[in-house]
């Protein structure tokens, strides 16, 4: 069945390539483009989607309409796009959770294969996680904290839930420094901040936008960011690479995907529109406020990036020792 489908898809793609691509791509888009956001309205993915949709629509000459299809950790909406017609009129606002972590967590149960079912278009933004300690903590750098944690196994740390990128990144941290610490999962980044403020925990990891709030409110001190380079919003905070954790590079990201088999010319058009939308004044300003670093990679770069991401997160999921039962 699967084979037949692939075969049919291949034929379809072939005939389209021969017959219609040029005409299709030239006229594309002649009706509104639907961007599926596989998360609830108001979430991080939804916000960036709505931000870029407007300038994108202007550049394409057709509106880009957001449709929220939340459910099952972003996999429901992703599956919708994976099965959609590869004509460029249904695209996906994918992210690290649904397109890199979910494939590692739920390998056989999610109804799509990221690298086979999607044509990556571009990576929009990236954000690191931030290691935080409460404001009156005696620790000022990662080294001291980890040395202390090594001598005192079982220290508590807070995460904004289980299975997300900050949580998995902390698994990488523990592995890298060889420390044993105990996770206290909260429901959201805001709750992690409140736990730090109330003194329930002294150590935490949080997404950058939430971490910024805690730092600005003076309830937490940042020790390190998990990206390969320092973040423009926290220029004084070192990376883990600078702090003796060479292997600790883990970021969360948002990117646009089209269904596999979408003509290259259309992917290219979408990429150009998105890349230009990222430079829109309003988008630049908002990204700055949200702590997002704009990327705007080419389809080829993004494809290679996604492939490496799936491997990275699969390794962290293995470290966490958690995998969904079959």
């Amino acid at each position: 069945m699967k084979k037949i489908k692939t075969l049919a898809a291949a034929f379809g793609a072939l005939s389209m390539a021969v017959l219609g691509t040029a005409a299709h791509a030239q006229n594309y888009p002649d009706r509104p483009v639907t961007m599926i956001v596989p998360w609830a309205p108001g979430g991080a993915a939804d916000i960036i989607a709505r931000l870029v949709a407007e300038p994108m629509g202007k550049l394409l000459g057709q509106p880009v309409v957001i449709e929220n299809r939340p459910g099952a950790g972003g996999t429901v909406g992703s599956a919708v796009v994976a099965k959609a017609d590869p004509d460029g009129y249904t695209i996906l606002m994918g992210n690290v959770a649904s397109e890199a972590i979910a494939p590692a967590f739920y390998a056989d149960t999610i109804p799509y294969k990221v690298l086979e079912d999607f044509a990556p278009v571009t990576q929009l933004i990236q954000q690191p996680s931030v290691l935080l300690v409460s404001k009156d903590s005696k620790f000022d750098n990662v080294k001291d904290l980890m040395a202390f944690a090594k001598e005192n196994p079982g220290e508590l740390y807070a995460t904004p839930g289980v299975g997300n990128s900050p949580y998995l990144t902390f698994e990488l941290i523990k592995d890298n420094y060889g420390v044993e610490m105990e996770n206290v999962p909260y429901d959201s980044g805001a709750e992690v901040n409140n736990a730090l403020n109330a003194g329930d925990v002294q150590i935490a990891i949080n997404n950058l936008p939430e971490a910024i709030k805690a730092i600005q409110a003076g309830i937490a001190k940042p020790l390190a960011v998990t990206a390969a380079e320092r973040n423009p919003l926290l220029p004084d905070v070192p990376t883990f690479v600078e702090s003796g954790g060479e292997k600790i590079v883990a970021i969360s990201w948002q990117g646009i995907f089209a269904p596999a088999g979408t003509p290259d010319a259309i992917v290219q058009k979408l990429y150009e529109a998105t890349a230009a939308a990222l430079k829109d004044e309003n988008v630049v300003q908002r990204n700055k406020e949200l702590g997002s670093v704009p990327v705007g990679s080419t389809p080829e770069e993004f494809k290679a990036f996604v492939a490496s991401e799936i491997e990275n997160w699969a390794y962290m999921v293995k470290l966490a020792g958690a995998s969904a039962p079959k």
Partner: peptide, 18 residues
């Protein structure tokens, strides 16, 4: 409520202690 927070964040306002 989560969606309402999202609506504020679309406008670049993040709810918080301040």
């Amino acid at each position: 409520m989560a969606v309402l927070i999202g609506a504020l964040m679309i406008h670049g306002i993040t709810p918080g202690p301040d």
